[in-house]
Computed example of a mutant assay.
Amino acid sequence: MAAKRIAVFASGQGSNFQAIADAVREGKLDVSIELLVCDKPSAPVVERAKHAGVDAFVFKPKDYPSREAYETEIAEELRKRQVDLIVLAGYMRILTPTLVEPYYGRMINIHPSLLPSFPGINAIGQALEHGVKVTGVTVHFVDGGLDSGPIIAQTAVPLYEEDTEASLAKRIHEAEQKLYPYVIGLIAQEKVAIEGRKVIVKP
């Protein structure tokens, strides 16, 4: 089985990009990172991609007349590289059907809560504000809604009374960096299937 070809979309620091790249470099993850897509030219993730030897498509949304316009260009870059799987890793743009529809079942996202709790922005702050005892990390397929696609895997992260947003975020990010390469590995081994709202993970 040929290694899956993936594209990582990110907008910021790129810690999850780095975790994936490290897993590939260490031989723990049998995929090929073909492309980084980034909407912020100054984002640290761009430098991480350069160090990892990964091509980057970097753009400024304001340079395009619409979301569909830049997503059409992204789609062409994905096609040129025969990308099998899109991995959203802190990509802060809402996606349109231009990308979501052709890649449904082949596009995943990671979110810093136990969905369906606390979708959208500031999930870590929401968890603290609500006083929950457990939050976590979710990897799910992207369906065009707000963090609403079928859930593939979740990891629980406890909250402590002394937690601040920074201390909780640190543990959340550590959990993300373990869970995301693991899930990508399952998909690369073709062990993941969608059946309606449910995701079946084969042994």
Rank of each mutant, 00 (worst) to 15 (best):
I108Y: 03
G125K: 12
V139A: 09
L146T: 10
P150M: 02
V24M: 02
I187W: 09
G105M: 11
G125Y: 02
V87W: 03
V139K: 10
G90S: 12
L179G: 12
N16L: 05
G120D: 03
N109V: 01
P65E: 13
G185S: 07
D63K: 13
T155K: 15
R67G: 13
E71P: 07
N122Q: 15
A7R: 01
I33S: 10
E176S: 08
I20H: 02
A19W: 12
P44I: 09
H140V: 08
Q82D: 12
C38A: 03
E174H: 15
S117P: 02
D22R: 10
V132F: 03
G136Q: 04
F17E: 07
P112N: 10
H140G: 07
F118L: 02
Y64H: 07
S42G: 13
A193S: 13
F17K: 11
E195W: 14
V58C: 01
V142L: 07
V37I: 14
Q189C: 06
I200R: 15
V37H: 11
L99D: 08
I172W: 11
T164V: 00
L146P: 06
A123G: 02
C38F: 08
A89T: 05
G185V: 04
E176M: 09
H140Q: 13
V139M: 05
Q18W: 07
A127G: 01
P97E: 08
H140E: 07
I124V: 13
Y182F: 14
R171M: 12
P61V: 04
K178N: 15
Q189G: 13
L36H: 12
Y104N: 14
S148L: 06
L159H: 03
L179S: 11
N16T: 12
G136P: 00
E26I: 05
S15L: 08
R48Y: 10
A7S: 06
A52G: 00
R25K: 15
V24R: 12
V192Q: 07
A89N: 06
I172H: 08
Y103E: 09
K4Q: 12
P119E: 00
A52P: 00
S42Y: 14
Y64T: 05
L159Y: 01
R81V: 00
A75H: 07
A7Y: 01
V8E: 00
V83W: 01
E101Y: 13
T98M: 10
K62T: 11
I172V: 14
S148Y: 11
H173S: 14
T98F: 08
G136V: 06
I151V: 10
N122Y: 14
V54H: 00
V134H: 09
A3G: 08
I94L: 11
L85S: 12
H130R: 13
Q82M: 09
S15F: 09
L88R: 12
A23T: 06
R106L: 03
A123V: 04
Y104W: 15
I151Y: 06
I74H: 13
G196Y: 09
S32R: 15
V100I: 13
V87Q: 01
Y70K: 13
P65K: 14
Y91A: 05
S117V: 02
P150K: 07
P44A: 06
F141D: 04
K80G: 04
V139S: 06
K80D: 05
V157E: 04
V87S: 02
P112K: 12
